[in-house]
Each structure stands twice: as C-alpha cells, then as structure tokens.
C-alpha cells in the first residue's frame, strides 16, 4: 500500500470527522438535533456512515490497487495482512482492502437504492390504502399479507432462475419490489390515524383535493416513522444482499460486494480467515451504525416530544 492510499484513508477519516462535527454544530441549534445527539451512539454511527460513504465515493483514491487486479496469483495467494496489503489478499491474490473499498460502493449503493424503491412503493401503497379505504384498502392489504407471508429468498431465487445473469440494477429493483410490504403497513396505520385528525378535516373543509391532502397534510406527518424505518431497512437490505451474494445469486464476481467477498473466502476460512472476516466486519459495523442512527432519528423526529 502506497503513501497516496494511506493519505487518502486519513483524508476519509478527516472528512467523516468533519461531517460529524458539522452535523453536531448544526444540530445544536434545534431541539430535534439536540435530541438526536443525546443518544450516546448517534455520533459514532454517523461517523461510520460518513466514513464508508466517503470511502465509497473516493474509492479510486483510497484503494491502493484496482479491485480485480491479480498481481501474483500464486505467490501472493491468501497472503496475511502486511504493510503492502493491510487486510491481506484473497485466493486470487487480490487486495482485500481495495476490494472492501470498491465493495462499499456496491453494497451501500444497493442498500440505499433498494430501500428507496421499497420506501417509495410502501409509502404510496400505504397512503392510498389508508386514505381511500373502501375496496382499495382491503385489496391492497391482502396483497401485502401475501407478500409478507412469502419467503423473500425463495422469490429472489425464482427470479434469478428465470434470469441467467442478473444485472445489479435488476437486483436492486427486485429487492426493492419485494421489500415494501412492511413499510406500507406502517404507513397505512399512520395514515388511518392522521386522517381522523382535525387538520385533515380542516383541509377538506377548505376545498383541498384528496391528492393535495395526502401530499401536503398526511405524508409529511408520516415522514418521521418512514425515515426511521428506512434507516433500519437499509441494514437489512445489505444483509440480504450479502446472503444472496453468498449463495452466488447476488452481485456476480469479479465485481466486489461485501457479500460475494465473504463467499469467495468461505473455502479458506481456516487458512486465510481475513478474506471473509473483514467484509463480514464491515457489514456488521455498518448495520450497527444504521441501527444507532435509526434509533436516534426515532427520538429526534418524534412529534410527541415536539410540544413538550
């Protein structure tokens, strides 16, 4: 690993620290922000997320080698961590740290994008079901019951069986399409209670159309629980991507994702544990960070504390 890569790594840490510092400074102005950082783990979680996001964005600078380069397939196979390869190399002599850095792009990207798809669908379905009721609600909710009762891995396996080589974008879409059921239930429940609130009746009395009422009065008040569930959901999508890649049906090699890195190392766990250990650690740390941030957001956005 060269000087440039070390400097870039330091730079990423500095950027992440600066981001957390700036967030704390901005947060100190409002009561919501103060509630957010009252959680002991919120700063740590935010730092982890900022760090990995920076690393993923600046991957070509941070990674000392290209992710798929195999410099010495025999001599450098499964080399333990050293100065040149801080996290060791894998069975094809590829640098684990470099692959981890590029893998962050794939894993975080899939997590965020798939969650975005799921949250959008879930919010739309939940809002329509909750607001329209009549026949729309029961139909949508039975659909959701079906979706929730089907094992997701099985559905994904079927899709993969139909599609020989699944592009990453399709993977994102499929994970998103199968992940909105829980969100829609959450949103529907919130909407059902919101629609009985008097400010919604007031908007109707003023002549607002249903679309306006949903977009301006109902959904903004659902935003808080939605954001929290999205933050927690990204973690579970990342875990799902990891298990899919581990099963060999996720992100196809040689594109590195944290999941397929674990899979690649699984046969050498006894002799070269670092090949699977570090991506596994990365997933664990990011998921924990997302949970910490999600919990802190839950407290910060709770409108019940708004009036206190």
């Amino acid at each position: 690993m060269n000087v440039r890569a070390w400097l870039a790594l330091l730079g990423a840490v500095a950027v992440a620290l600066a981001a957390v510092g700036e967030a704390r400074r901005l947060a100190a102005r409002g009561s919501r922000g103060r509630r957010f950082f009252r959680h002991g783990t919120a700063s740590g979680g935010l730092f982890v997320l900022a760090f990995f996001t920076t690393v993923a964005a600046a991957a070509p600078l941070v990674a000392p080698y290209p992710p798929s380069s195999m410099p010495e397939i025999v001599a450098l196979q499964n080399a333990p961590p050293s100065l040149a390869h801080p996290l060791g190399t894998d069975v094809y002599s590829r640098d684990v740290w470099s692959r981890l850095v590029y893998g962050a792009r794939v894993s975080l990207g899939i997590g965020a994008l798939a969650m975005l798809v799921a949250v959008t669908l879930g919010a739309a379905a939940g809002a329509v079901a909750g607001y329209a009721r009549r026949w729309v609600d029961p139909v949508l909710m039975r659909l959701v019951d079906v979706g929730l009762s089907m094992p997701r891995i099985f559905v994904l396996l079927m899709v993969v069986a139909l599609w020989e080589r699944l592009p990453v974008s399709a993977l994102v879409l499929v994970i998103g399409l199968t992940g909105w059921f829980g969100t829609s239930r959450l949103v529907r429940a919130e909407v059902l209670s919101l629609r009985e609130r008097e400010f919604v009746a007031a908007a109707r009395a003023l002549g607002a159309r249903p679309a306006r009422i949903i977009l301006r009065h109902v959904l903004p008040n659902v935003a808080a629980p939605l954001i929290v569930s999205a933050a927690l959901g990204i973690g579970s999508v990342m875990l799902l991507e990891a298990s899919l890649s581990f099963l060999g049906i996720g992100v196809p090699s040689p594109v590195p994702s944290w999941g397929n890195m674990i899979a690649d190392g699984k046969d050498h766990l006894a002799t070269a544990p670092w090949t699977s250990l570090f991506p596994g650690l990365a997933i664990a740390i990011v998921v924990m960070a997302l949970n910490a941030v999600g919990d802190a957001l839950r407290d910060a956005l709770d409108p019940g504390q708004e009036t206190a």
Binding site: A202, H217, E306
Partner: peptide, 11 residues
C-alpha cells in the same frame, strides 16, 4: 374546531 392542537398541521 375545538382542539387548537389537533386542527393545525404540526409540520
């Protein structure tokens, strides 16, 4: 409305 807390959109 009666309830000045519930009749305005908090956001």
């Amino acid at each position: 409305f009666q309830d000045p807390y519930g009749s305005l959109n908090p956001r």
